[in-house]
């Protein structure tokens, strides 16, 4: 047996049963049209109404603020590492966010393993819900090759009508289905229907970026002096929202917080954002990326050049959150296409 069917009306039961063993985070509506991942009593995923959550589910693996160490300074420093983790299920993660987590897995394991991330990750079960339609106008997952996902999740469910066509990727995935879900074995006709629906979706997902994604590092290598950065310098507010909502942004600040006894305290990390003014300021006051245009250029290069070259994978997952959240409508796809266009004009000259 490989794939199973879970009836839609029984998905809530599966969700609730998981809570016996795990803290379960699912999608819920925060305000009309805006969704968040949260610990919910009931399965409340909006399914076909779904739009990417305000923050991606990375917050459960790499929280906004996190304690790294606890220390006591008297009479001599005594330090203990703090690595928090618990058994958790992220329920209803879409392909773009699964790719986001996959990429963070690479980052936090590369060079030096970051246990504060990896131990949380190791305790996390990911239940995906696949997308058959683009979720909203800003989605461009297909352009970066991230509509398809074949790794980085435990269970994947696809809405094929009144049932979820469900497959697992890991032994843990199989185990929790057997333990907590009410399911039927998928018959050949179900599998055919599932495959047909999946192949039919291809045409619905537009290729919005006007080149093959693998060409982007080259385009960006040649785009340091692209006029687009000057134009964005005038528009960008430097508010950091594009960083904060990004599934693959992982920069952080580290700081000490002493308790009022002035003897013990914590060392913490907090999400930082490379579009903020002070991101590259050194103690002597020099700012190595003083303008908003330079900082935005850096952010785009992280997604499509620097990290893409190092890990051979786009660090934009196509969720469109940065575009949606930008108060001054800086559009990622438009910016990338402008870089491509200006490059080509440059080539012709």
């Amino acid at each position: 047996m490989k794939d199973v069917l879970i009836k839609k009306k029984e998905i809530g039961l599966f969700y609730k049963n998981l809570k016996e063993e795990f803290t379960v985070y699912g999608v819920k509506q925060k305000e009309k049209g805006f969704y968040v991942f949260d610990e919910t009593d009931e399965f409340s995923d909006p399914l076909e109404e779904y739009k990417p959550t305000i923050l991606p589910p990375k917050k459960f693996l790499f929280p906004q603020q996190e304690t790294l160490l606890r220390f006591n300074t008297q009479p001599h420093p005594d330090i203990k590492p703090v690595i928090g983790s618990k058994k958790q299920v992220l329920f209803g993660v879409r392909p773009c966010d699964i790719h986001g987590i996959r990429l963070l897995d690479k980052i936090f394991n590369a060079d030096h393993e970051d246990k504060n991330y990896t131990q949380k990750r190791a305790m996390t079960i990911i239940v995906g819900i696949d997308c058959l339609e683009p979720c909203y106008e800003h989605a461009h997952c297909a352009s970066v090759g991230y509509l398809e996902v074949d790794d980085g999740y435990d269970i994947m469910m696809t809405d094929i009508g009144d049932t979820f066509y469900t497959s697992w990727k890991t032994p843990q995935g199989e185990e929790i289905i057997r333990k907590y879900a009410k399911f039927l074995e998928a018959k050949n006709e179900d599998t055919d229907k599932f495959l047909r629906m999946k192949s039919e979706r291809q045409d619905r997902f537009e290729n919005k970026i006007k080149t093959n994604v693998s060409n982007l590092p080259l385009f960006f290598k040649n785009a340091d002096n692209d006029p687009v950065w000057d134009e964005l310098n005038d528009r960008c507010l430097g508010c950091g929202r594009c960083n904060i909502v990004c599934p693959t942004c992982y920069c952080f600040d580290v700081y000490d917080c002493m308790e009022l006894n002035l003897a013990s305290g914590e060392r913490c990390r907090q999400w930082d954002a490379c579009t903020l003014k002070d991101f590259a300021v050194v103690s002597t006051g020099e700012n190595f990326r003083p303008s908003r245009g330079q900082r935005l250029r850096h952010r785009f290069n992280r997604k499509f050049n620097y990290l893409m070259t190092k890990y051979n994978a786009s660090f934009c997952v196509g969720c469109g959150r940065c575009t949606r959240s930008c108060p001054v409508n800086i559009d990622l796809v438009e910016t990338v296409n402008a870089v491509i266009k200006n490059n080509r004009i440059h080539e012709k000259q």
Binding site: I107, F108, Y250, F252, D253, V254, R269, A280, V281, F288
Partner: peptide, 14 residues
């Protein structure tokens, strides 16, 4: 450059 983690994670010295 500005450094926080010293181990290639925090992004500041990039």
């Amino acid at each position: 450059r500005r450094m926080k983690c010293g181990i290639g994670k925090c992004g500041h010295c990039q």
